[in-house]
Design a protein around this nucleic acid. Structure first.
Lengths: 113, 113
DNA sequence: TCCTTAGTTCAAAATATGTTGAACTATTGA
DNA sequence: TCAATAGTTCAACATATTTTGAACTAAGGA
């Protein structure tokens, strides 16, 4: 099963930027970037907000075309739409991810590990 | 004379992205990028909104550290803080400017010329 | 079957953002 | 000095976004 995702030409620059212009969502994207290839589910973002709130932010990321969400039983497997974003906006995601690594929320997470 | 501008370490990624996550401001930045080196004043953005509204958007860009505004008589000379942004967020501005060139507002402006 | 786990949906409230017109300041040119 | 030009500020309004808790669905495991 699969949730609605925009296709390439429906992904708009202004929308991507405004969705990423938020600490919580930037932290989520930074975390996803550090864990590419691994299966990441909503629960892993619990440091970043309440369950309800994360559901809201994750929907925004998906609807903007930034993440892909796959339904797997009671969980959702979330990943970056890296290839899609790279082809639509070359270099954008890389520069954002690099800059996002110094975000307090992500540094805190790394310190704990 | 000079208006208040944030210094390098006061420029935050989330703020820059959220300020650029708006059609009008993206168009302004795209225009500035096409006219680097030239003196650009507020009046030149009149296609993008009313005088009052532009004053608001230009203040947001300045306060986020994206533009520099220099007071010159009754005008303001506006420019991108390219070097500052490049050093703080390498590659970010370039990728945004490249992607912003296909924005309707900017294409319209080029068609008229 | 019953309970737990994972996440969603909804409506309400709080907060932030964008847009407007009227009144304003400051500089410049006649 | 006077009027015009360039842009700002303010308050008001409209709209959008974020956050919350309570109630929900749907899948698994005991």
């Amino acid at each position: 099963m699969s949730l609605p995702h925009p296709n390439l030409d429906q992904i708009s620059l202004a929308n991507v930027l405004s969705v990423l212009g938020d600490q919580t969502r930037l932290a989520i994207v930074g975390y996803l970037a550090c864990n590419e290839g691994l299966a990441v589910s909503c629960g892993q973002f619990s440091e970043f907000g309440s369950k309800t709130n994360l559901s809201y932010h994750l929907a925004k990321l998906r609807e903007a075309g930034i993440t892909h969400t796959e339904v797997a039983g009671t969980s959702r497997l979330i990943s970056l739409r890296r290839a899609d974003l790279d082809s639509r906006f070359p270099g954008l995601l890389d520069s954002i991810i690099t800059a996002a690594q110094e975000l307090p929320a992500l540094e805190r997470l790394r310190d704990e590990a």
